Simulated scan of single mutants.
Amino acid sequence: MLRVLHCVAGMGRGGVETTLMNIFRNIDRDLIQFDFLVTSKEKCDYDDEIISLGGRIHYVPSRKQGIMKSRKALIEFFSAHKEYKIVHQHVSSLSNIQAIIAAKRASVPVRIIHSRNTQQSGSKLHKYLHLWNQRNIESYATDYFACSGLAAKWLYGEKQFTKGNYKIIKNGIQTDKFVFNSETRDRLRKELGVEQKLVIGNVGRFNLQKNHMFLLDIFKSVNDANPNSLLILIGDGVLRGSIEDKIKELGLNANVILTGVRSDISDLLQAMDIFVMPSFYEGLPGTVIEAQGAGLPCLISDTITNEVQITDLVHYAPLGDTAEEWRDIILNMTADFLRCDTRLELVEAGFDMKSIAKELQKFYIDKFYTLLSETDEPNS
């Protein structure tokens, strides 16, 4: 059996992690198993499911615990685990590619780097490291993946982007799971006590990238115009305290629900009337794909790639526009809106998870058998 090692910070319920789990659930696990190399010691949302599906979770210290300690642990890991012939590292920038570098030094033959975003946060040092590694990435990686063309251009630079030396792996969804269901909608709205309200929703980590502060300003404007409105924020993160403070400051305590991290996103999307995402940047946000799968109108910032606009449900607005201008678009988009089944559009656009899992499975197996054939050659 081929075991593929995925390198991530941890397997919490984030966008990248959820996409990985969707692929893991849909591959032929008699042929391929996914294992995970993580830097988080805390138990994460998907850990139990990974084990139940036959995967393994390995831990190495993060760079925050010491650069040399982390590097030494990676070297020792790959020295002890010669079974891995394919290493797949998922990144938002090239500032930390130590897993791929250690895999190269251990002669792991297939080393995939996967771009998951279109910008990075962090210090000037992080930006310098990103640019430095961008120049040298060909020395370490054998294959280049990205969730979108924009994410590829950001990570690999103009030179590699122009060459087209990358493969797009779309952030697909299980389309049948998200299709609009009026019974589910009625049940969830009753449970949440929002039967007669205009419900605006967002799914995302509580961090700077997602721009929740502007979203709250937008909602305040909507609520002033329509007091019978409500905002649902699904997720959690380092800015939760700041978000709670702003909710109080705006006097919106009774009109905003913070659900925390949830596993029933497909159901919660049914309860919403519009999905709003004013992010500063995104790779290709799977949540917008999910919202379209649920037949929801989506208003997103114009910084987000147009590759996510699969249906006519998606509309863009500039981040430079005022909260009032976003409000007017929201009220216009939700007036007399009827939900629809978008399954066929998502499947035809290549965003069905079953097809994506098959595509990635074929890539891994083709690589593996190529390696076997090379090993079997005389004098190899």
Rank of each mutant, 00 (worst) to 15 (best):
R3Q: 14
V4D: 08
L5Y: 02
V8G: 01
M11P: 08
R13Q: 08
V16I: 15
V16S: 04
T18R: 15
N22F: 01
R29M: 04
D30L: 01
I32R: 00
Q33F: 04
D35F: 05
F36G: 02
L37I: 10
V38A: 06
K41T: 14
K41F: 00
E42D: 14
Y46N: 07
D48K: 13
I50W: 07
S62H: 01
I67H: 05
A73G: 06
A73E: 05
I75F: 03
E76G: 02
F78I: 03
K82N: 12
H90W: 12
Q98K: 08
I100K: 00
K104D: 01
R105E: 12
A106N: 07
S107L: 05
S107Q: 13
V108I: 14
P109K: 10
V110C: 10
S115I: 03
T118V: 04
Q119N: 13
Q120T: 10
S123K: 06
K127S: 13
Y128R: 05
L129D: 05
Q134T: 06
N136H: 15
Y140H: 13
A141D: 03
C147M: 05
S148H: 03
A151F: 03
A151S: 15
A152P: 04
W154Q: 01
E158V: 00
E158Y: 03
Q160R: 10
F161S: 02
T162F: 03
K163S: 11
G164L: 08
K170M: 05
K170Q: 11
N171T: 12
D176R: 09
K177H: 08
F178V: 10
S182G: 02
S182Y: 10
T184Q: 11
T184G: 02
R185L: 03
V194R: 09
E195V: 15
K197D: 12
K197H: 06
N202M: 09
L215Q: 10
D217N: 15
F219Q: 06
K220Q: 13
A225C: 08
P227Y: 06
P227N: 13
L230S: 01
L233A: 09
L233M: 15
D236L: 05
G237L: 07
R240G: 08
R240E: 12
S242A: 14
S242G: 06
I243S: 08
E249G: 04
N253A: 14
N253Y: 02
A254H: 13
N255P: 01
I257E: 00
T259P: 06
I265W: 01
S266A: 13
S266V: 00
D267K: 09
M272F: 14
I274A: 10
I274D: 11
V276K: 06
M277Q: 15
L284M: 15
G286F: 00
T287C: 14
E290L: 00
A294C: 09
L296A: 04
D302A: 07
D302L: 02
H315S: 15
P318Y: 07
L319F: 09
L319T: 07
G320R: 02
A323V: 06
R327M: 14
D336W: 03
R339L: 08
R339M: 10
T342H: 07
L344G: 00
E345T: 10
L346R: 03
V347W: 00
G350Q: 07
E359M: 12
E359T: 11
K362F: 08
D366R: 02
E374S: 11
P378C: 00
